[in-house]
Design a protein around this nucleic acid. Structure first.
Lengths: 217, 217
DNA sequence: TACTTTATACTTGTATACAAAATACATGAT
DNA sequence: ATCATGTATTTTGTATACAAGTATAAAGTA
């Protein structure tokens, strides 16, 4: 994923898409806010044509709403949106967990366990940001071990849409501890290659995520 | 879904997207084929700007591949693509089945059973086309009964991508009979509101779909 | 003949200009 | 004062022109 090989020849379109996506995910563009074309194309230094194409891509990804003749806004997720997305994400990661146990190589499992150990270090040091980032990567990479491209695509789309909300919702210390416990269970199951158990653990983990974030929406 | 209320004020963008999408799904534009901008904008009577925006939407939906500076092609699904999509679709519809049993109203169940009965009539008359169309609708509407918008969105995206291949693959009579048997099982479980059973039946049905289509890819 | 190189045509990408629609504002009637 | 109506301003949508890149074909070289 994060290798720099295929990133070299990024088209302007891709660049604009990911820059605007980042602005949305990081909250520089607030949910529900109007997207000011004139302002953004200025800031990004591109003209309207590629910018609007990027908006169409982001709209299809579900991050932006385009209302004909009345401009675009950053999609604002309702409680129901988040709940339904997490319901699906949990189910997808359950499948990912099952498949990963069946299909991952020993090395791949070892690499993921390493990542997990790093996360634990950050947890012990209470470094929220690096933990959060590795956590995203953990879920992405575990999903990748399913060797199912379509699953990865959908997982990553949902993860991107929910990124902001999950970050906000994870603030209380007891919540964090709960998430860490979930991860310990998951890694144990992965080591044992117990697909059913890992799947269950993933699903439970995401159900818990809902409990963690639901009050901050 | 199919109500005409929200369709009234369709923007040009939406129209172009769905017309090109139909051309792809119906096979008028063959998988792997180059998309000739000049030709298509002529045929659709629009200019390049809205057409290219539509291509970006279709690319994000996974129906079109845009290679920078060298044009767009209709995405051609590999065996692996189809297999992984069906793996995910089966899992999603399993969830849909479980949720539908828990959340659908009596009327909604009755309406779906009606639809099923119509399908059976077409099967007995061996009218493939109307059966096929109702089948798509059956899966969409059952998924809608999950009352999970995100799930519907992903199901409908996968269904669209696979539409053509599933149509091609369903030609042998014994395959058709098998699909019909699956549907009988599904409807029986839905009537009993047995979520686990319906979920299982849906998953099995889609696994069988792979067996039905795999040799025609 | 095979392999470069170079010129040409064609396709794609981006910017901009113009048209259409929507919003904001002001004026006047009730 | 409130609402309606008409006008101005801003924003969005589409077409087109130009620039940049890619593929094609022709000519030259080994």
């Amino acid at each position: 994923m994060g290798t720099s090989l295929e990133i070299e020849n990024r088209s302007l379109h891709d660049q604009v898409v990911s820059r605007v996506r980042d602005l949305i995910i990081e909250g520089a563009l607030e949910p529900g806010a109007r997207i000011d074309e004139a302002d953004l194309i200025q800031r990004l230094g591109v003209s309207r044509t590629p910018f609007r194409e990027a908006l169409r891509t982001l709209a299809a990804e579900g991050l932006v709403i385009v209302r004909p003749s009345r401009g675009s806004t950053v999609r604002k997720l309702t409680r129901e949106d988040v709940k339904s997305m997490l319901e699906v994400l949990g189910h997808l990661e359950q499948l990912a967990g099952e498949l990963a146990c069946a299909r991952a190589s020993e090395d791949e499992v070892a690499a993921l366990v390493d990542l997990h150990n790093q996360m634990m270090k950050h947890y012990l040091a209470r470094d929220r940001m690096p933990y959060y980032k590795l956590n995203q990567e953990f879920h992405s990479r575990l999903t990748a071990l399913s060797k199912n491209g379509s699953l990865q695509e959908m997982q990553s789309n949902l993860q991107a849409r929910l990124k902001r909300i999950r970050y906000i919702g994870n603030e209380k210390p007891e919540y964090w501890a709960g998430a860490v416990a979930d991860h310990e269970t998951m890694v144990a199951a992965l080591k044992k290659r117990d697909g059913k158990a890992l799947g269950e653990a993933m699903a439970t983990h995401i159900r818990n995520t809902w409990d963690r974030v639901k009050d901050s929406i």
